[in-house]
């Protein structure tokens, strides 16, 4: 009986884990690598538009949105059939985006256009545009859905936009070349990574004032090779993971104390991060080495490196 239960549990657990699928955009291969997370192997590689970068999943995980930057389009892929269903109008050179908590509105950073474009994913129409600084990049939506933040890489600011009216609420200067922005789950604070500044800026969301600047030091790594890009909070919100680019490490930060607790060695030029929906694994894309590091989110150790295409950029995982 106990054996049968264990077997049943194993099958059940194995079943859910086996269904976990990671999508990785390969910027220089114009393709998406589809990874079987349990087997930790590439199950499929799908050709998409030119220079795919930011990718994200719909709340029901049925659709994968892909920024095909050089095709000036956002493609919508069916995650079951892996077929591209249609393109969304995107504005020029879409690089990153964030899906609003309403699951409908997609806020896109148009890197060459110096604007943020809002797309209604149901009607497939552009419903608004907001002027921001030069080279818009990072995008974040507050958990309550009221505010959308964009970072501009050359203006070096975080721009706070009213999610509905698109009115500019405020601008917070941050370090050089801000790449990525993310709100804590509580919505209390916004974190922004600054690639060339080598810093992470923790900003109070209510006052939009900077509260803390994190910097990094890894023995044997020159300071200016530490270039923070991707950022992801752990499932319980206690840890923040920061991809440090050509430093080839992921920093693990205690969110409470704002102290670095560990540096995890990964592949070359680590770019973006994503957790599996169960929070157990952290996936990191390594651009130059062309692979994905699979990190155990509890032990903070790399368990496997999976070769993908050339210049893996974004990553998204469905259960």
């Amino acid at each position: 009986m106990r054996v049968a239960l264990t077997v049943a549990a194993a099958i059940f657990w194995g079943g859910t884990a086996a269904a976990q699928t990671a999508f990785v955009s390969n910027e220089k291969d114009d393709s998406i690598s589809v990874i079987d997370v349990k087997a930790m192997t590439v199950a499929n590689t799908v050709k998409v538009g030119r220079r795919p970068r930011g990718i994200t999943l719909s709340p029901d995980f049925k659709h994968l949105y892909i920024c095909a930057s050089d095709s000036d389009a956002i493609q919508v892929m069916d995650t079951a059939t892996l077929k591209v269903l249609h393109d969304l109008p995107s504005g020029e050179d879409p690089e990153q985006f964030v899906l609003h908590p309403d699951g409908v509105r997609l806020y896109v950073a148009n890197e060459d256009g110096n604007v943020v474009t809002v797309i209604d994913t149901r009607t497939r129409r552009v419903i608004g545009q907001a002027d921001v600084g030069i080279e818009p990049e990072g995008m974040a939506a507050s958990p309550d859905g009221r505010v959308v933040v964009n970072t501009s890489e050359t203006t070096n600011m975080a721009h706070w936009l009213d999610a509905d009216s698109l009115a500019l609420i405020d601008n917070t200067p941050v370090g050089a070349r801000p790449r990525h922005a993310a709100f804590e789950a509580s919505g209390r604070r916004l974190w922004v990574t600054a690639e060339i500044g080598g810093t992470v800026h923790v900003i109070d969301a209510a006052s939009r004032a900077e509260r803390h600047v994190l910097s990094f030091a890894i023995p044997g790594v020159p300071k200016d090779k530490i270039q923070p890009v991707g950022l992801k909070f752990s499932a319980d919100g206690r840890l923040a993971f920061v991809a440090l680019g050509p430093a080839n490490h992921v920093a693990v930060i205690d969110v409470q104390s704002l102290k670095v607790v560990k540096y995890i060695l990964v592949g070359r030029r680590v770019w973006h991060l994503e957790l599996t929906p169960d929070g157990a694994r952290l996936l990191a894309t390594n651009g130059i080495s062309g692979d994905v590091s699979v990190i155990d989110a509890r032990t903070l150790a790399v368990v496997k490196t999976i070769a993908v295409g050339r210049y893996p950029w974004g990553v998204a995982v469905k259960p």
Partner: peptide, 10 residues
């Protein structure tokens, strides 16, 4: 042009 794009915010 780059300066003005950022300058208008300040």
């Amino acid at each position: 042009a780059d300066n003005n794009a950022g300058g208008r915010f300040v």
